[in-house]
Each structure stands twice: as structure tokens, then as C-alpha cells.
Design a protein around this nucleic acid. Structure first.
Lengths: 210, 210
DNA sequence: ACCTCTTGTAGGAATTTTCTGATTGCGCGC
DNA sequence: GCGCGCAATCAGAAAATTCCTACAAGAGGT
């Protein structure tokens, strides 16, 4: 029996997963968490075989949480889900040692395949998105400048371009404002920009915002 | 018994709704569709009392579909759901005669309230977003909001969205920074925005920048 | 092994921006 | 022709951001 932990801040989505998985004899949704902190606490109990986590949660993001999980339990299989087809995140997630990355609109069958595949530490990438993903990784090697940003920098950038103040970003990410400000400087440097306004323009032109 | 049709391209989300609604004695999820075309076909059978539809579906969008539904069945209550809290969509949805607009992360209770409210043709708007919404609608009536800016405000706005600092704007325009800052506040107020980042987005979306 | 570069993290000081009011003049309606 | 609101302007205090600097841990090259 595969013991599963669901981490997602949308109640409806958690229910959906639960229901879908309830038909499977070998999978048991052992518990749910609605944020990263809750997830970490539950994971410490050590009774899960797989974690299924949303990548875009309010507050502490999924990627962040993934890193914390990796710090404590390097072998625990984690599948990251994303609402958006933002493949940038896929790259980041896999680099942060997620065992799988799936869009939330996958067919149930594929999710099941992924779950069974990662139990024991394997990795799974959707065939459909594999090509896409490789392309992204290729581009990361020389293409769009923002793919050179680290996960942290990307998170900060997205929050900034959506209009959050540095202070709020700091609070939400549990970092000093100074740190956030440093990230901002590095982001601007890496992208060759000079102001937040240009950053927002960059984000819109590169489809990071809409 | 309220007969309900769910339209959403995310299988998991459909399951989540189904599960959530299965606890309600007076509501019955009669069928599901995964896209607009399917939804229209099912609606022609005429056996639904309410349609619950995602606004952001791949392919034919929810809004599109809503218009088709209205053409055939002007009285059928339709509730639009969106992943994003973006109020712009809300306005569009309601203008296209949706009976309600909700973000997908609403509490289940609120969704139930909305469903019961719209049966029979009523409308429901989340109290939380009502005020915001009304403001948007007012603005929608009067054309592009930035046409209400004074010449001075417009000048300042353009310099800001191009990335100039308030201080530099002040120097260039021979004004105190304080004055520039005051203009900025007025611009944001008039446009219903909350930050420079949103201002830049606004400018780009409205062709003021490129 | 050693050196260098990158990443994640911040502190203190220097600036910039925001907030909270104010003042003045100008057109507009009654 | 008086008051009212709006546009343009700014000051002082308070808050946020930026600048410069630093440092430790890890990755990577030689």
C-alpha cells in the first residue's frame, strides 16, 4: 500500500485528488496539508511513501518546501504539480530533485503511472512534456536570459513583477528585506535591466506574466 | 434537486467538485464536460438547472462558450470559475451574463451559497470582491481609464513606466519629488492599481508602451 | 589541495519613496 | 459672485529601498 501525502492550498483540488485516488487499491491518501509548513510537520512523522505537492502555493512556495524536504528526507519521492504549463518551473522542480513534474490537467491515468513510478525513488516525466522540457533545458543553456536565474531569484522576480513590495516578499519568504533586495539586484544584472519597470516589461514580453 | 453540469478541462478539478457537492442533499452533479463544445452538446439536452464552468479552458475559452450558451438558453444559470483572482475576468464574465463569478480557491461553503443563489436566475457576487468589481464596471463604461488622467499625470506616468525614478522625473520636469510622488498616487488611484509593477502592466496592455 | 565563482544570506548607512497634510488658483454651477 | 472641487504644487516625518559590503558553503576548474 502506497501511503500518500497531498499538499495543496486549494480545498477543491485536494478533494479531487483524494477522490480520484480512492479508486486505486494500492494507493492510500494518508493525509493532506494546505501549506508547506504543515507538510513538513507531517512528513516528519515519517509515515508517507510519496508526496504530491502543488508548486504554486501561497506563502511558502512548493519549491521552497521541496528543498526543505530534501534536506531532511533525501529519498522521499516527491511529485510536483503545477496549474500552469509554465515549463520554467518544471526545469526548476526537477533540478531541485523532484521525482516528477506534472501539469494539473494530466489525465488521472498518467498521475497514477507517475505515482507508482516514483515510489522507491524513480523519476517520471510525462512523455508529452518531455520533448518540451528538453527544449527548455536546451534553451536554458543559451536562450532567454531569465532561465539563468536560480530558483530563488525566479521566485522573487515573479513576486516583484506581480506588484508585491520587497518588504512583503521578504515576509512571505521569511527572508530579510536586504536579502530580497540583493536578489533583485542580481536579477536585474543577469537580465541586463535597470529598474523594476523594465523587469515587468521583460516579464510580460517573455510570457512570464498574464 | 438541483441538476448540475460541470465544465472544466482539468479532470482532477472536476472530481474535486463532484466530491465536494456529493455531500449536499439538494444538489446532483448530473454530468461533466471537458470542453466548451461538449458542454454545448450536453446543454442542448436541456436537463440541467445550473452550469459550473471554468473560465480558462484550453481551446475554446469559457467566455466564448458562455456566449454560445446565452445565445441558445438565455435563462440557464451559469457560474464561472477562475483560477486567478483577476477581477478583469470577473467583469468580462458578468458582462457576458454569467450569473456568478468565483475564484477556484473559494471555500466550499461559498460555492454552495452561489449555486443555490443562482438557481432560478439570480446573481451572486462574492462580498469580498463586490466593491472592487463595481469600480471596474464603472470604469468599463467610460472607456480607457487613462483617458481621465491630466496631461501632467500622463507625462509622469510615461516616465515612470519607462523605468525612470521619481527623483529623476522630478529633476527632468523641474518639480519636487514630492509632487511627482503625489501624481503617482493619483495615477494609481484613477486607474485602480496598487503598485508601479501593475502600472507597467497596465501601460503595456493598453498599448502605451512597447 | 587551492583558488575562484556562484548562491544564499544579511547589516548599516545613504537614498528614495510614501504618507499625511497644506496652499493656491481656476473654472463651474447656482 | 461665492463656494466647491479639482489640478498643481510642495513640506516634514516615516517607511521602504538601495548601496556597499561581507561571509559561508558548495561547485568547479587547474
Amino acid at each position: 500500500m502506497i501511503e500518500l501525502l497531498i499538499v495543496d492550498d486549494h480545498t477543491i483540488f485536494r478533494s479531487g485528488l483524494r477522490r480520484m485516488l480512492s479508486d486505486e487499491a494500492d494507493i492510500h491518501v494518508a493525509d493532506e496539508a494546505s501549506d508547506g509548513a504543515g507538510a513538513l510537520a507531517k512528513i516528519r512523522s515519517g509515515k508517507f511513501d510519496v508526496v504530491l505537492m502543488d508548486i504554486n502555493m501561497a506563502g511558502r512556495s512548493g519549491l521552497d518546501t521541496l528543498e526543505s524536504i530534501r534536506a531532511e528526507r533525501p529519498e522521499l519521492p516527491v511529485i510536483m504539480l503545477s496549474m500552469y504549463p509554465e515549463e520554467q518551473y518544471a526545469v526548476l522542480a526537477l533540478r531541485a530533485r523532484a521525482n516528477a513534474y506534472l501539469s494539473k490537467d494530466v489525465e488521472p491515468q498518467e498521475l497514477l503511472t507517475a505515482i507508482r513510478h516514483v515510489v522507491g525513488g524513480g523519476r517520471y516525466v510525462s512523455p508529452r512534456s518531455a520533448a518540451n522540457l528538453l527544449m527548455q533545458m536546451d534553451r536554458a543553456r543559451e536562450g532567454a536570459p531569465h532561465e539563468k536565474l536560480t530558483a530563488r531569484e525566479m521566485q522573487v522576480m515573479m513576486k516583484i513583477v506581480r506588484g508585491m513590495s520587497l518588504t512583503d516578499v521578504g515576509v512571505q519568504m521569511c527572508l530579510s528585506v536586504k536579502t530580497v533586495s540583493t536578489y533583485r539586484v542580481r536579477i536585474l544584472e543577469k537580465l541586463g535591466l535597470a529598474s523594476n519597470a523594465e523587469l515587468v516589461q521583460y516579464a510580460m514580453r517573455n510570457g512570464l506574466l498574464d
